[in-house]
């Protein structure tokens, strides 16, 4: 009987002893990868948006409510990127820990200086984020700050692991620094090279690489290209001697592919990987972008 009781107690408490790890939910895979890089073994990480999904227009699913209801920390991009789907999910999650204003709710843009703040006074220019361009994770230098934010939040929620997180943070920052040094020779060749991008999502990437975005495939953010605009782009690409066309994998490929075919300018379709396991997953995104861009220059 005693043995049975003991077994029962372990069975009941088992889920709690295993659940000692912090449960981190990120809105996009890049933030999940960075969280994994800092949190290491002390956390479990998942991303709401998957690699091939547009984080602006995610289709809210009931399963998101379930994962948010169990999260200890929610890391989101902020600046209105997730406004189309995250707020009602947060309310439905009934999870006080991750509501805005609590240590479990991390707006990863905290402390990053942003591009295009107050760029739009109304929506006549398309769907622009008035608080600033939210695609800041595409400049790897911003990850010094994002990683720092994540480390601070994790340390707040899990004081025991503070030194662990700090150690991993400095490891990550050293890694990032050496990566940046490796990449600096590659981006040297890119300075001033002209590109066309689908959405205004590469502005941080170009701030880092010195690439010059001469046009967007979307005439205005959130507005799909008209045939007139495509003709205009086709001319412009020839005139401006554009080196490459960039598009995220979740945008329709038809127009970028058409432009690439007509103008013989290489098309770079990129997506973040579904792999959210640490720094390498985050770096891989840039490795791919730089590699393809360098091939395009050749």
């Amino acid at each position: 009987m005693k043995k049975f009781l003991l077994l029962l107690i372990t069975l009941i408490t088992f889920p709690f002893t295993v659940q000692a790890k912090l449960n981190v939910v990120a809105s996009i895979p890049e933030l999940a990868a960075l969280a994994q890089a800092i949190g290491g073994e002390r956390i479990t990480v998942s991303s709401i948006a998957k690699a091939n999904q547009d984080p602006h227009f995610l289709d809210a699913r009931p399963s998101f409510v379930v994962s948010l209801s169990r999260a200890d920390l929610l890391i989101h991009v902020g600046l209105g990127l997730e406004v189309g789907w995250l707020p009602p999910l947060l309310t439905q999650s009934r999870n006080g820990k991750i509501q805005p204003g609590n240590p479990g709710n991390l707006d990863a843009s905290t402390g990053i200086s942003l591009l295009e703040i107050g760029a739009a006074q109304d929506r006549s220019g398309g769907d622009i984020h008035p608080m600033g361009n939210p695609h800041y994770w595409l400049d790897p230098r911003n990850s010094f700050i994002i990683a720092q934010n994540i480390s601070q939040s994790l340390s707040l929620l899990d004081a025991e692991g503070k030194s662990y997180y700090q150690e991993r943070l400095s490891t990550f920052q050293t890694q990032l620094k050496s990566k940046l040094q490796t990449w600096s020779s590659q981006i040297e060749k890119m300075r001033g090279k002209k590109i066309v991008s689908y959405h205004r999502s590469l502005n941080y990437f170009t701030a880092w690489t010195g690439l010059n975005v001469v046009a967007y495939i979307e005439p205005k953010p959130g507005i799909p290209p008209s045939s007139k605009h495509v003709t205009y782009l086709q001319q412009l690409i020839g005139q401006e001697k554009v080196t490459a066309i960039f598009a995220e994998s979740f945008y329709p490929h038809k127009v970028p592919e058409f432009l690439s075919q007509k103008t013989k300018v290489p098309l770079i379709i990129f997506s973040n990987s579904n792999d959210t396991q640490g720094a390498e997953a985050y770096f891989a995104l840039f490795e791919k972008l730089l590699k393809e861009m360098n091939e395009a220059i050749k």
Binding site: R141, L180, Q181, E188, T206
Partner: peptide
Amino acid sequence: ETPAQNYGQIGPWKYPKKNNL
């Protein structure tokens, strides 16, 4: 400002921007 002004920097970067949020 053109974004290309601060290209290639190693280390965290502040985009030159008036912050009037």
